[in-house]
Design a protein around this nucleic acid. Structure first.
Lengths: 109, 109
DNA sequence: ACGTGATATTGCAATATCACAATGATAAAT
DNA sequence: ATTTATCATTGTGATATTGCAATATCACGT
């Protein structure tokens, strides 16, 4: 077994879980914060600011990219990252919706 | 290695990640929703509503309990679960703070 | 073309997570 | 007391994640 039985759950539930899963690691939280504080920073800066290795950072960047929170800016050999604010808002909306609905349900029942 | 290097990150980052990590599984999202819609439901109802086995549900309940979102109500042989609204709000606040701060930082830089 | 710097990919080891069968514990019902 | 119902715990196998060393790629400058 060991795999997630996603088919048992609906799209909305999977969507919330997909977003929060990516946020569920302190390195990725730190990276998102660093990028937001240093717009157009590159991979090396993240390596330095987190203390993780370059391959590890690259892998985490891939996860963050998967949920669309990352924008990439190619300038020659350099790759500058920034946060996609629209997607961040969408993510925030989805997660917040979950909280709001849960709260409302609690108060009803 | 394969373990999470939590000591590299600060308390605030770990706190956000701890909350979102628990929310990062569709079964737990579905369970929280079900409990919120059916106040004081028991374990069996969750087993039926999700299609997962009782031990699996019990394990997920443990994870949700760890971040304090669960209240338990013992009535004889029955154990009724409900959502701790205060803790849900605290969780929501912490996660939302992360989004807000990230957004503000993006707009500054 | 060659070296350099930046990032991605691959391969691997360690650990964590997911899911369930089996078992244990407890309290009501018979 | 025995059964039944409910939930937790333990043990397991399977899969996923984390992290890094080694390597590959790619764009620039020389």
């Amino acid at each position: 077994m060991g795999f997630s039985k996603r088919q048992l759950f609906n799209d909305s539930q999977n969507q919330v879980a997909n977003y929060t899963k990516v946020l569920g690691h302190p390195a990725r939280i730190a990276m998102i914060q660093h990028i937001s504080e240093n717009n157009n920073c590159n991979c090396n800066q993240l390596v330095k600011s987190t203390g993780l290795s370059q391959p590890t950072i690259s892998q985490h960047l891939g996860e963050i990219r998967k949920i669309g929170l990352l924008k990439q800016n190619v300038k020659g050999k350099n790759l500058f990252y920034s946060i996609d604010l629209d997607q961040l808002n969408e993510c925030r909306r989805v997660v917040n919706d979950f909280f709001v609905k849960t709260q409302i349900n609690c108060n009803k029942s």
